[in-house]
Design a binder for these strands. Structure first.
Lengths: 417, 417
DNA sequence: GAGACTTTTTTCGAGCCTCGAAAAAAGTGT
DNA sequence: ACACTTTTTTCGAGGCTCGAAAAAAGTCTC
């Protein structure tokens, strides 16, 4: 709050709001936007006609034939030709890329399996560079200027979203992907944590439930979290933060993949569940290669009879419950979405989780805490990255007004060159 | 970001910034303010002459005789007559009130000892009402309009800062102090958590160290925390939140004052240190009445020889260290201030704390985490409340422009009546 | 001590931006 | 075909900030 506000900042903000309302609202009319934003009709009219002249928005006759009397509303929509964004998703042993038009439609995509853990540093970087390059040269893009690239990865990124600091997918650390990709293609890039992108996707999927405060927990080989508080993504002061999986569950307890002891993940990650189900103790070195079928088999066994498998899921639930209890002591309870492979086994986890949470300070209202499950983490990640990239274009580029109104090709070359 | 921005919002913000710069800067000149805010000289000139005409700011000849050439800068200062604020501080067995002028000078104050735990609900409320009433009628206030009351209390308040939800100082819960006081005096009131106010005070005391991200930990009978992240006070979604003392240190561990088990406070609060030093186990019911001398004696004993006292402080350090480690996993490390009685014994706590933190994920850079101690929590609380009240007047009242420019008495009666 | 010099502050016209009211537009209903 | 309803645009007014120029209030120099 130390920097003054000028006249054009005001316009910029109001333009951003019209664009945002259009992206959210499907086919919002000027009147609806005026009501949402609280601005006058004249202002909305002026802004939207600017945006249409700049080819950012388009007018579409309302789909549903007006059954009401009066002049029919004219729906505003995003102009799919206005821009293109590309998302890159780097996970253990896989790299994917998707390019989308400004309205969010997929233009083309590519997936590759890579042995990320074995790949040398430059080879890993090179794979990202070439896959992005192929998206840029792909004919489906047509003349759309590429205005944003988002690279999402498992692990920790820096607070400025420019580097991957550490990731379980590779032994290499501090890879400045944003600098590297920008140097090659001159398109603004951010590097994001995958769980944050999943949380981003949830807000768009179900804005009723996931509005201002909610939690996305990734239950997978590791444990991740995306946290939205007071309407904005919560990140650490120096890194992407929210390493929920590495909060301490039991001081000096079971061995975690991160090399430390007693982390929540060391009780609730796939490898921990497997370790407990197999009857090994917490000193056993974590396995790195547990596949989907294996976890499903464990869940089946746990459902069929009371044995070490059921106990393993119970231990996972307890660790997650105490962790959530501690988190709730800090932020108060909020809706939770369980995402990823082991969300499919949440029925085995939930009872112990709720029991543990009720024994903590955050468990005041343990009955009112609601959980939702979403096993398909890939789809969520894709959507989240896309929305992150598109809203960047909305707020940081198009809200500021376009340099040239009539020649998108010129604009494009000036940005991509 | 859903509400539009109008023309007067812009002025309001820029006025707020001029006022804020004046409050921070001591005797900022117009030129300095222009540099800080990035606004033009003309704008600053217009705004400040408005503020002076409205008797919010005053011009003061620069104290130091200008040694430079050129027209000397004219210092702007807050007009002490512009307003009055009152702070009420409710603690275990004590209630204090202070009234201050708009520049932050103390006008008068009062302290009373009360047996808060034994007081019936209405009696407790009544004490607050009458003490506030006496401040309002006190002659030192003169004609200053009372524009804000802040009531700070130990315990949990609601996110809207209107009610005390729960507090260790009284068995009564959900006391809507803001509504009650406003109904009686028609002055806007907020109810704040005491640790948050201490954090607020630290930003004003040492803005270099405590700027955008830092942590204040209250080491006292209980354990509290005030957290500033990305430049703003962090609170829960429904309550004042940040109940660091009730994060889980050891599942099903020692008995806490809150009735649950294993909380950090049950290892690091005064009663926990005493309990461990006395050789009782964690099932022993917490004592409620450990005075300062008793804790000092424990610290002395711990310093003089290796015995149960030293071990008790070590256990406290360990609990705090693991707790901070978990917190740092979420938010990354930040400067820490240890506040309150037991901060004087931080030398006994620190080694075990650092050792524990180094064993957690948050302990990556455990060497770079710095601790500062401030045993005088009362002074900090007073300052924090005062600044919270004054900045409310700055931002929410004076930034919007005054109804009457010439008659502060009329303004006053309209607000206090 | 008068005039040159320097720096701060104010003044003034221009350029934007939003607003409210009125007008225009584009339908439905009779 | 005309009245009615609702949406959208137009237009003048009022505010706000900006840059440039002028005024103000000192120090410095000779």
């Amino acid at each position: 709050m130390t920097v003054g506000m000028r006249h054009d900042d005001l316009r910029r903000r109001n333009r951003a709001m019209v664009i945002a309302a259009t992206r959210r609202g499907g086919q919002a009319s000027r009147t609806e936007i005026a009501a949402i934003t609280g601005l006058s009709h004249s202002t909305i009219s002026a802004i939207s006609s600017d945006l249409i002249a700049e080819r950012i928005l388009t007018q579409t006759r309302q789909d549903a034939p007006a059954l009401k009397r009066g002049r029919p509303q004219v729906g505003l929509a995003l102009n799919p030709q206005a821009a293109c964004v590309v998302t890159l998703m780097l996970s253990l042993n896989s790299l994917s890329a998707v390019s989308l038009d400004y309205a969010g439609n997929v233009l083309d995509e590519e997936h590759r399996r890579l042995d990320t853990r074995a790949l040398p540093r430059d080879k890993l970087i090179d794979e990202c560079l070439t896959m992005l390059g192929r998206r840029l040269r792909h004919p489906a893009r047509q003349a759309r200027p590429v205005l944003r690239v988002v690279l999402a990865t498992q692990g920790i990124t820096d607070a400025e979203a420019r580097s991957m600091l550490w990731s379980p997918i590779t032994p290499h650390t501090d890879i400045a992907f944003a600098d590297l990709l920008e140097a090659e293609f001159s398109i603004p890039v951010t590097v994001e944590n995958d769980c944050n992108m999943m949380a981003e996707a949830l807000r768009w999927r179900d804005p009723e439930r996931y509005r201002d405060d909610f939690i996305a927990i990734l239950l997978s080989h590791g444990i991740g979290m995306g946290l939205v508080l007071k309407g904005s993504m919560f990140t650490g002061t120096h890194s992407s933060g929210v390493e929920f999986g590495h909060m301490v569950h039991r001081p000096d307890g079971a061995l975690c993949r991160c090399g430390r002891r007693g982390c929540i993940e060391a009780y609730a990650g796939s490898y921990a569940i497997w370790r407990n189900a197999a009857g090994h103790d917490g000193n056993e070195e974590p396995r790195g290669d547990i596949d989907e079928a294996e976890m499903q088999a464990l869940a089946e066994a746990a459902r069929s009879h009371d044995g070490p498998e059921r106990r393993a899921f119970r231990i996972a639930g307890e660790a997650l419950g105490f962790g959530l209890g501690s988190l709730f002591a800090l932020i108060d309870p909020a809706p939770v979405a369980m995402v990823g492979l082991n969300a499919a086994a949440f029925d085995l986890i939930e009872p112990a989780l709720r029991e543990a949470i009720a024994r903590t300070a955050g468990g005041h209202h343990s009955g009112s805490i609601t959980f939702d499950t979403e096993p398909d983490q890939i789809a969520l990640l894709r959507e989240g990255c896309a929305m992150r990239a598109l809203t960047f274009v909305d707020h940081r580029i198009f809200a500021g007004g376009r340099p040239s109104q009539d020649d998108p090709a010129a604009l494009h070359s000036s940005l991509i060159a």
